[in-house]
Structures are given as structure tokens and as C-alpha cells.
Design a protein around this nucleic acid. Structure first.
Lengths: 266, 266
DNA sequence: GTGAAAGCGGACGGCAGTGTCAACTTCCTC
DNA sequence: GAGGAAGTTGACACTGCCGTCCGCTTTCAC
């Protein structure tokens, strides 16, 4: 069982206690006071959205959220005229959790272990929340929103990378952005394989970590290669369903939505 | 420049001459003879579909294909009542090309090199054709279609893997399906990064190959980590645009489409 | 040249998701 | 407990894509 030696370290590290609940973000402080019923509905909407989006990603429709929250669509639109407004509210605590994970990882003595652990914990978080994966990748209407979140995490990752390099355990030609790409790549694998083998990503994380480390300490890979039926269920889920218009229209143009013409309220 | 020693081998191997053109699949042989104008339109539709699908993936609409082919929608539907019918026609030569690559890779003396080269050439093919990536992953209406194609490739990959393991260059705990997953993972990276840095995938392929090899011969990584603006353009393209209904409804149920109720022609 | 089978085209109805708005309800203040 | 501001609701109009259908055109065999 030594195979997992690198991957269950948190057990004896006793660190990183994030377990899904976070000290409720700011109560009605900056935002104007809402009437009691409005506030109640607002919470219900957030709860519903959190649940649906964690399961199915940022694409869930307002109507569905409204239904889950037992509220009219109009209410959802009134409270969150923009999807981004909703996402911001939803994910600020999740982003904080990722930041916390990175900070804790920085306190671990062995820098390489710290980096590995950060990635592992991050994926564990991502496994539980499809919306978070998509949010951090920036598939929201205003790219800035997610970028700002990523900017809170990046410096910490940079530090993790540098530490591991200084310790001579990480290849010197690996940059912080490589880690970002790897996080995205494996996050994607999680999307596709979660429903078949929720731990499959550990295997490929191990491969990639072996690929970016320096030296040749390699344990056995965790888990097993997927068998044929598993593979047949994993692969087709990999690519967007239809409407593959896909090609991420490179130019930073693409306004993508009029963003609620009216209601120029504030 | 020794950095690329493992990745440009085909230059001195002088192998794998696939360059996008393939000896036109069977002419009107098994399929009933078409009237001359119909045959002409058929070709135009295929050409248009090939072009659009290579650029933008399997999601392009029939209407758009019809427009590109300068033909009515009805004609496209008449000729290819099912998307799968069209895809089959479109991709049989591409699949043959992948098979050819694998076969050639099997003739290379050094088995590890053979495996590396197969993957590299496969990605080069995939870089040129987004539709091919999606097709091989099986995101088509009938999963069987793509599965049958994959089944032509798999035994060859299995052989490549075994050879490399027998030579002691590939970790013994890596299976053929691991290669499939890796192909999908990096194919996905290609989707997202092609428009920013068409060769970025080589970097992560190198990382993964280092991760699955045995021993510690590691060259410098090809390319450079993406810089910040590049990253900001790569990540948001990673995840499907909207309609993230995503969660690949596990059960093999999901009929997904009535598949042309009428036209029970044949 | 001609008749009819084969083929063509694109307007049209269907469907799914989105966001709005005018009529109605609830809450809070005085 | 009354008045009005704040909030709620869901039907509806809109959009965009899908696939069909029927009146018209073209080809080909004779």
C-alpha cells in the first residue's frame, strides 16, 4: 500500500480541514437591506443555485433554479440580473477555500509535498463542485470575474512552485502557468470520469506529478487503468454535447450578451 | 536544441507520410447510383462539412453546412438523414490515417520511440481537425459508431504499449486505456489552446510521457509555459459555452434523439 | 423530345431556453 | 390598520436551431 504514500499525506499532516462549510460570507452589510421576505427568497435562490450548479455546472437555467428554490423566475432575475452577479456571490467562499488550501500547503515543510498536496486538495474540492471547475476556468460572461479570482490564487501557486524548485524537487523549467494548465486538464478529466470512477483523476495526477518532478522517485500509480466498459462511458462525455460552435472565438471581442439592458437601477 | 530530440524523430525516421490527403474512400460502389446532380451536391456537402467540422467540431448545424455547400438544407437532410451517417462518411479516411500512423509506429525499432511517435503524430492529426477529436471521443448520436472506430485503433495501441513495456521503457502499470485517457486529455488541451499557441500540447505531452516512462531520461520540456495573457485566453475556452447540462447522465439510457422517425426508407 | 422518377429548396412548425412586465401580494411604517 | 413601497409571479414574446414537407426543377431512359 505504499503506493499512495504521496497522496494521503494530509492524514498525518492533520492540515487543511476544509469540509464544505464556510463561515457564511458577509451578511447584509454592503448591500442595501432587503425586506424580510426578499432576504429569505434570496437565500433560497442561492441555496438552490449552489446545489444545482455544483451538480451540473454553470449552465443551469434560471427557470430551473427558480423551480428548485420554489420561487418565480422573475424573482431570480430581480435579485441577480446578471449571471455573473450570482456566480460572484456563489463562489467567493469557494475561492477562499482554494486560497486557504494553498496557504496551508505553503506551511508544509517539504515544498514538493506542499505542491502535491495543494493540487490534490484542489481536485478534491473540484470533484465536489462542477461549477467551481467551470468558474475558475473563466467560463462566465465577464472574463474579469474569474480572472480576479484566479489572481488571488496565482501568487500562492507561484510561491509553491518556486519553493519546490528551490528544494530541487520540481523541474526548473516548469512555471506557475504550467500548473494552471495541468489543473485545467485534470479538472476536465474529472468532469468526464466522475460518474464512472470518482478517483480516477488521482492516477493521472500521479503521472503528471512524476512528469514534472526532478529525480526518479516514483511510486506505483494509484488505482488501475479504467477497463473497457468504463472507458466507453468516460470518453463520450468528454466533449460538449452539441452546439459545438466551440472554437473559442479567439478575439477578445464577443460581447456575448447585452447584460440586462433595462434595470439600470444602481 | 537537443530538447526536442524525442519529438522530431520522424524527421530521421522518414516515416509516417500522412499529409492530409487520403485516397478517396470507395466511390459509388455499395451505395445506389445517384443522379449526376445529386452526386455533385453530395460531394459539395461533404467538402463543406469537412471544412466546417474540421474548424469548429461536430456541432456545426446542417443549415450552415448547406449554406457553405451552396445547397438547400433539405438536400443535406435527404442525403444524410442522420448526423452519424455524415460523420461516418467524413471520418472513415481519418480513422484510417490514425490506424496507419499506429501501424507505422509499430515498425519503429525502438518501442518507446514508437509509442511516443504515435502519440505525437496522432495529436498532429487532431490539431488539424477538431471534428476528429470529438469523433474519436465518441460524442456522436450513436456511441457505437465511434466505438467501432476506436476498436480499430485500440489493438495497435495495446501492442505499442506492450512493446514499450517489454523493452523496459514504459511503466509496467500503465495500460492501453491509460493511453486513451491521455489522448483525450491532451486532445482537450488542444481544443482550448490551439488558437493561442498551436504547439502548446507538445509541452504537456512531454510531461506526461516523462510521467509514464521508466527510468529518468528527461530532456528539457519543449516550448515555454504560456504567459499570463495567453493563459487568460486559453482557460475560458476550456469549458462548454453555456447549456452546461453537462453531467454526462451516466446511465446508458438517454436516447438523445428520435433518430429520424420517418424516412424508414431502406 | 418527352414523361416521370429523382432530386431540390427553403418556408414553416416545433421546441427549448431566455429575459420582461403588468397585475397582484406582502411587508413595514406611522 | 391603512397606505404605499418593495417584492413576487408566471404568462408571454423572442431567439435560434432542428428537421419536415410539398411545390417546383432537373436528369435520364426511351
Amino acid at each position: 500500500m505504499k503506493a499512495e504514500s504521496r497522496f494521503n499525506l494530509e492524514e498525518w499532516c492533520g492540515l487543511l480541514r476544509y469540509d464544505g462549510v464556510v463561515p457564511q460570507a458577509s451578511p447584509p452589510s454592503d448591500r442595501a437591506l432587503l425586506r424580510s421576505d426578499a432576504e429569505r427568497n434570496r437565500r433560497r435562490i442561492l441555496a438552490a443555485a449552489r446545489k444545482l450548479i455544483a451538480e451540473r455546472g454553470l449552465g443551469v437555467g434560471y427557470h430551473e433554479i427558480a423551480q428548485e428554490a420554489d420561487v418565480g423566475v422573475g424573482t431570480v432575475y430581480r435579485r441577480f440580473p446578471t449571471r455573473d452577479r450570482l456566480f460572484q456571490e456563489l463562489f467567493q467562499d469557494r475561492v477562499a477555500a482554494v486560497v486557504a488550501i494553498a496557504e496551508e500547503a505553503l506551511t508544509i515543510e517539504d515544498p514538493w509535498l506542499g505542491l502535491c498536496l495543494f493540487m490534490q486538495r484542489d481536485f478534491e474540492l473540484q470533484s465536489a463542485d462542477r461549477g467551481l471547475r467551470e468558474f475558475l476556468l473563466g467560463r462566465v460572461d465577464s472574463p474579469d470575474l474569474a480572472r480576479r479570482s484566479r489572481e488571488r490564487i496565482q501568487p500562492l501557486v507561484t510561491r509553491l512552485v518556486e519553493r519546490a524548485q528551490e528544494a530541487g524537487r520540481l523541474r526548473p523549467d516548469v512555471g506557475q502557468s504550467d500548473i494552471a494548465i495541468i489543473l485545467a486538464m485534470i479538472g476536465n478529466l474529472i468532469d468526464s470520469s466522475l460518474h464512472v470512477d470518482p478517483d480516477l483523476w488521482r492516477r493521472y495526477l500521479a503521472i503528471v506529478l512524476d512528469g514534472i518532478q526532478r529525480g526518479d522517485l516514483r511510486d506505483e500509480l494509484p488505482g488501475k487503468p479504467p477497463d473497457q466498459p468504463q472507458l466507453d462511458r468516460i470518453l463520450p462525455g468528454w466533449v460538449p454535447p452539441r452546439r459545438g460552435q466551440g472554437a473559442p472565438r479567439d478575439p477578445e471581442s464577443a460581447p456575448r450578451r447585452g447584460a440586462a439592458r433595462s434595470s439600470a437601477r444602481s
